[in-house]
Nucleic acid binder design. Structure first.
Lengths: 354, 354
DNA sequence: AACCGTTTTGTTAACGTTACCAACAAAGAC
DNA sequence: GTCTTTGTTGGTAACGTTAACAAAACGGTT
């Protein structure tokens, strides 16, 4: 159970400190510090001598100690529901690329759709004294979330509104997205809808539901409660929930899915039930993940610029850390991408021929 | 450019220290420390009083300071080429789940297939004094990689061999995987092969090439150099490279792809060239990412248990950190998953009918 | 009341770094 | 040769925590 400090016992380069270097070079620690940080006011000869020892000992500044002194860790926290959902990796990449350029390191944490793990991660970020936090698609209720975020130096939430004094907000206009999808299906002639609404604690999901309801109401259609099923935002979640949905009577001829993974699960179920998509059933996804175009059939979905979402969020976070005026939240518009999973309903044809 | 220490100026819960709590409660810092760490030897009455102040001030231990004292940061580094490749998220999840249970925090870094960023990340991990590192699919040459890893307290590499005194190794038997794929295609009757070999600095790719060569040699077939094309391990990389490959004469009737993304790109190209997969062209992927079964057609590929790979690597890392006997590397076997992208070649039929 | 052992609490120093100020040396001004 | 001025270097303390030891308080014996 003892933890060896170094693997290679005789490695002199292990963990040399400023003092080690100072002693070896015959100068004070301060002088070494100045050399390391490229500060002026060191005689070239001294600098050379110190630098030689620095290299020889393989000195690496201890960022932990530096952070303790400076009360800054140069670390940012990024909290996402689950990197396994392809929506997030590119968002992470967007955030990471911006953070990297600004000299920050990212601590990534998945909370796996679990509120308690989300809260635990937020606490962990506090204890670690990260310089700022981005929380994607939080599942925590507002009060608890804000309590945590208020304790942070700076914070940005993605896919959620937030008061400017608590956190910046970068979000997708999910209501508009949902309306675009519904309008598309209405134009194709669909009248019987099903919704696989994702986790019920997702605010994005709630916004989409609102959009769906409004757009349908405008068309004089009411959506029955039983046609709305909440499910985990995964392929499995989609295939399970769609099994229930597609055995309802009347069977919906169009399904609006929480995201592309849920849509993928729905396609799978449809295949198993020998329902042809889009002939018997139209399916709309959400997010336009990279593989949506590869699905069978290629998925009609709403494109969300995830990389930019992450990059925006990170830029906003860095801005807030620097005390820049608190900008209003950023809202990006999703774009409807029509592919082959939606078409005019032909159920009647098929049924008459059956 | 000034960095405000707190967003909510009047938030008393901001960043209270042990001393703040001690003063408020009228005890010494040590006593508070004992309460925080749930150590015995504090009178219940005192403990209660301290705990009340602790809550009132919203004290959070400063892990940075604790780490400085203990020379342990409770942080582990995880370096991957690119989370955007669905191979990695589940590996990350595997590693993270194990690390989380053991009380460690993960610092994730993408090096985006860039050697210099890989080296920079490794240096960053050193400066941050992480307690251990896992490096996935390193692109760095052995000498440079080992130089970095030797400086770490503990290290594990995934998808690469390593001497036990430098790092643990968890890898997939890529040579066997490649041979399984080739054998499958040979059994179907294919004789003209193309290889989209991925990045030329990927050791996994090199192992697969070796496997392909051997298996073909055993069958008396030689693979022409020009039929091997290196490409980035992405969909774009695959579609670009396959364009070149599929316009060669004679056109290969079977393509072995570096991973499922490259295979996806190849399917796309085939569609554009009006080549039917699998009738005119068989395509084999690698990894069995979650969406491989959703592709058009469903992809024949080699299943790699990525989640377990990550979990194994993390367990091994924790073991090495605890000075457990250095186990020999773990090697997992990939499994051939036959779907619809491979079949007996029917090119001759089609050509005669054309 | 003096003594003991036990429990509870406090003091000091250290982890590695750097801000701040003091000390010193060298070079120039008179 | 003394007095600045400028340039270079060193000493001290502090960031927040905790290990190790020291001291006090307590309860019970004789």
């Amino acid at each position: 159970m003892t933890r060896p400090k170094r693997i290679v016992a005789d490695d002199p380069a292990g963990k040399a400190t400023l003092h080690d270097v100072a002693k070896q070079a015959g100068v004070s620690a301060m002088t070494v510090s100045r050399v390391v940080n490229e500060q002026p006011g060191v005689k070239p000869a001294t600098r050379d001598r110190v630098e030689r020892v620095l290299n020889q000992l393989g000195y690496r500044p201890n960022i932990v100690a530096r952070g303790l002194k400076a009360a800054e860790t140069n670390t940012l926290g990024l909290l996402v529901p689950d990197v396994t959902n392809p929506y997030f990796p590119s968002l992470v990449r967007g955030a990471e690329d911006v953070a990297f350029d600004a000299g920050y390191t990212l601590v990534l944490h998945n909370f796996i759709e679990d509120r308690e793990r989300e809260a635990a991660a937020l606490t962990m970020f506090e204890e670690r004294r990260v310089d700022g936090v981005i929380v994607c698609s939080p599942r925590l209720p507002e009060s608890r979330l804000h309590e945590h975020l208020a304790r942070q130096t700076a914070a940005v939430v993605v896919n959620r509104r937030a008061p400017a004094e608590i956190a910046g907000s970068v979000r997708v206009d999910h209501e508009v997205g949902a309306r675009l999808a519904v309008r598309h299906l209405l134009e194709l002639g669909h009248r019987t809808f099903g919704v696989l609404a994702g986790p019920d604690d997702s605010t994005a999901g709630q916004e989409r539901l609102a959009g769906i309801h409004e757009e349908l109401k405008a068309a004089g259609i009411t959506l029955q409660e039983a046609s709305i099923i909440h499910c985990p935002p995964t392929m499995k979640g989609g295939s399970d929930a769609s099994k229930v949905l597609l055995e309802r009577d009347p069977r919906p001829d169009a399904v609006l899915c929480f995201n592309d993974l849920v849509a993928a699960g729905t396609l799978e179920t449809a295949r198993n039930l020998n329902l042809s998509v889009p002939d018997n059933l139209s399916v709309v996804g959400y997010d336009d993940i990279a593989y949506a175009s590869m699905f069978t059939p290629a998925l009609t979905t709403l494109r969300v610029p995830t990389y930019e979402l992450g990059a925006h969020a990170m830029r906003m976070l860095l801005g807030r850390m620097n005390g820049e005026p608190r900008s209003i939240g950023i809202v990006v518009q999703p774009e409807l991408i029509v592919r082959n999973s939606t078409s005019t309903p032909r159920r009647t044809l098929q049924e008459s021929s059956a």
